[in-house]
């Protein structure tokens, strides 16, 4: 990274286009470090990683869906359902923590299943199907919470609370969860037969079908997995805040999509990939963290992160087009 910073002055307009995304990363990194030197401190780098946990978890599911040639606008809803189901069974039914985890994941999978039925059975395009789920799922949360008030539960079982705050050998459990999912998704998408089939469907679903792949079943599995994965993000969020906040998940939707596309544009063939998504998520987390440390007004921060997002996407796509 330092070598890159040293070469910054020589980066002209041409350089910006050629190194596109990396240039934005470098400019942001230097800018944040200058604005607040504590940005580059070890403690803050852990903060950046921690901040990346939920976006990464959601982004992994999104990577799978985009690799299928589809999109899932309802991952935020699946995250909310994960968090809601877990908190409700803990609070109202006194369920054991592991049961709550399982039921939370099932809640997210339920959203994925709804999408799968709409897309595979009713043949609605993934965009419109998940948009429908997005609205219905949001509406259901409002109905259930009588208008959108959070459901808080202060007396969480310690094991559940540890999902967000616990440590093993000094490593935060939430980071371990994210790392485990990262490895699992890497193996699944980049190394397994399932992943090969997923990519074939995403690239040319007609041809995959003619080859005899069970396209409908694989698409359904993809959406259910994406929903279940997003729900894990919901578990982390609910454990962290010790409450279920309705509609909180939608905040992660845009970041997840952006991370996947930034990652895809860094890939040689321009396809969604797990390591690219990781890079995209880390970048977005770095930007959020850096803007926080600059002590900016909350609204200004929102606007700036939106603009940086657009710029990063645009440059990474220009960069991909230059290369091919």
């Amino acid at each position: 990274m330092s070598a890159f910073i040293a070469s910054l002055p020589t980066l002209g307009r041409q350089g910006l286009a050629r190194h596109g995304f990396l240039a934005v990363v470098a400019v942001c990194f230097v800018g944040f470090a200058v604005a607040n030197p504590s940005f580059v401190g070890g403690a803050n780098l852990v903060n950046i990683l921690s901040g990346a946990v939920i976006p990464l978890i959601v982004g992994l599911g999104m990577t799978l869906v985009v690799a299928l040639g589809a999109i899932d606008l309802s991952v935020g809803i699946a995250l909310d359902f994960g968090s809601a189901f877990a908190i409700v069974v803990l609070k109202d039914y006194g369920a054991a923590w592991y049961l709550a985890v399982l039921i939370g994941i099932a809640g997210g999978a339920l959203i994925g299943l709804a999408n799968a039925v709409l897309i595979v059975r009713l043949r609605i395009s993934p965009f419109l199907a998940t948009l429908g789920t997005f609205f219905i799922g949001g509406s259901l949360q409002r109905i259930f919470t009588h208008g959108g008030g959070p459901i808080s539960y202060r007396r969480l079982p310690p094991e559940y609370y540890d999902i967000a705050v616990g440590e093993v050998f000094g490593i935060p459990i939430r980071i371990l969860i994210a790392a485990t999912l990262l490895i699992a998704y890497f193996l699944l998408l980049e190394r397994s037969t399932f992943g090969k089939k997923i990519h074939a469907i995403g690239l040319q679903s007609r041809a995959a079908r003619v080859a005899g792949l069970p396209v409908g079943r694989l698409v359904a599995i993809g959406f259910v997995l994406a929903g279940a994965t997003a729900a894990v993000g919901g578990l982390v969020a609910s454990a962290n805040l010790r409450m279920f906040t309705p509609l909180a998940g939608n905040a992660y939707l845009m970041d997840a999509i952006a991370a996947v596309f930034i990652g895809a544009s860094m890939h040689r063939d321009g396809r969604p990939n797990v390591l690219g998504t990781l890079t995209g998520v880390l970048f977005l987390s770095m930007v959020a963290n850096g803007l926080n440390l600059m002590g900016l007004d909350f609204n200004l921060k929102d606007a700036l992160s939106g603009l940086i997002l657009v710029a990063a996407l645009a440059l990474s796509i220009i960069q991909h087009r230059r290369r091919t």
Binding site: K196, K197, H199, A200, L203, Q204, R206, A207, A208, R209, V210, A211, L213, D269, R271
Partner: peptide, 16 residues
């Protein structure tokens, strides 16, 4: 449109 996944390589298509 239907025969091969054109963006994949020959090996992946043969094994698909």
């Amino acid at each position: 449109n239907d025969g091969l996944v054109l963006a994949m390589n020959v090996a992946d298509n043969i094994n698909l």
